[in-house]
């Protein structure tokens, strides 16, 4: 295992993050505040409580999940796509590293960034609503697993993408709709019965539900199922990454 290489890639990616720390910090703070103003205050004032939680507090886990997923994907996909695009990838390809080390470096850094931003949102939320976390360990576990899985997913997208359009395509066309329809801002139980059924095919529902359970102790689906879903997704991404590594797909000509 070439740990020096993992460290190098990780530091390099984090350096990019720290160069733009202010942006990395300010933009989630602003967007979170906006969500609270729009959803929490304007709409929330007309919605009483959902399952005994004020609407403002209710959307916090969903908001964190939404951001963590999109950040994990965009950071990791951009991180690996950019060297491909400008040609510096030759160095990673000619270095004594295997794919696992490259993945650890890129996806590890992307997951770290997503985690950081998730925590910033959590902190910002605390200014707007009263938050209590009933199961902090489960919360941390769900959060980290989600960061890692979606960083891996983003890494796969970055390898697959042949141009910037493709890089944006999956997050825009698949992930954002799934996240918005995944119960981030509402409880699945609020939907008409037929949609409640359809929604269960959306994997994001399980993540948001499980994460929300760790905050408030209530869930749309059993928490064990949530854990299974996120662990399953993480495993699936790992398998795909491993296959890419075996075949050198889209990397080595």
């Amino acid at each position: 295992m070439n740990f020096q290489a993992v460290k190098s890639i990780y530091y390099f990616e984090m350096a990019r993050f720290f160069r733009t720390l202010l942006q990395s910090f300010v933009s989630p703070v602003i967007s979170t505040s906006l969500y609270f103003i729009v959803f929490g205050t304007a709409i929330g004032s007309r919605i009483d409580q959902i399952e005994g939680v004020s609407y403002g507090a209710f959307i916090v886990p969903g908001l964190i999940m939404l951001t963590v997923m999109t950040q994990g994907i965009s950071n990791a996909s951009f991180g690996i796509y950019f060297p491909k695009f400008i040609g510096t990838i030759y160095e990673q390809l000619s270095a004594p590293v295997n794919f696992l080390e490259i993945v650890l470096g890129y996806a590890g850094a992307a997951a770290t960034k997503a985690l950081f931003i998730g925590l910033v949102i959590l902190g910002t939320s605390a200014f707007f609503v009263d938050l209590s976390i009933q199961h902090p360990w489960a919360m941390a576990g769900f959060l980290i697993l989600t960061c890692v899985s979606f960083a891996l997913f983003g890494f796969i997208i970055g390898i697959w993408a042949k141009n910037f359009e493709q890089l944006q395509l999956i997050p825009l066309l698949v992930v954002t709709p799934l996240v918005f329809l995944g119960g981030s801002f509402y409880s699945v139980s609020m939907l008409p019965p037929i949609w409640q059924k359809i929604t269960l095919f959306n994997p994001v529902v399980y993540l948001v539900s499980g994460f929300r359970w760790s905050f408030f102790g209530t869930a749309d689906v059993p928490v064990g199922l949530s854990l299974l879903a996120i662990a399953g997704f993480c495993a699936l991404c790992m398998v795909v990454v491993w296959i890419i590594f075996r075949t050198g797909w889209r990397l080595r000509s």
Binding site: K7, R16, Q92
Partner: peptide, 24 residues
């Protein structure tokens, strides 16, 4: 390499350190 492929925003010394680390 034949083409000049470098990270434009990186500092010279960081670029060299990065390569060194990459090679373990």
């Amino acid at each position: 390499p034949q083409e000049i492929n470098l990270e434009p925003f990186q500092k010279v010394i960081d670029a060299v350190r990065f390569s060194r680390g990459l090679f373990g």
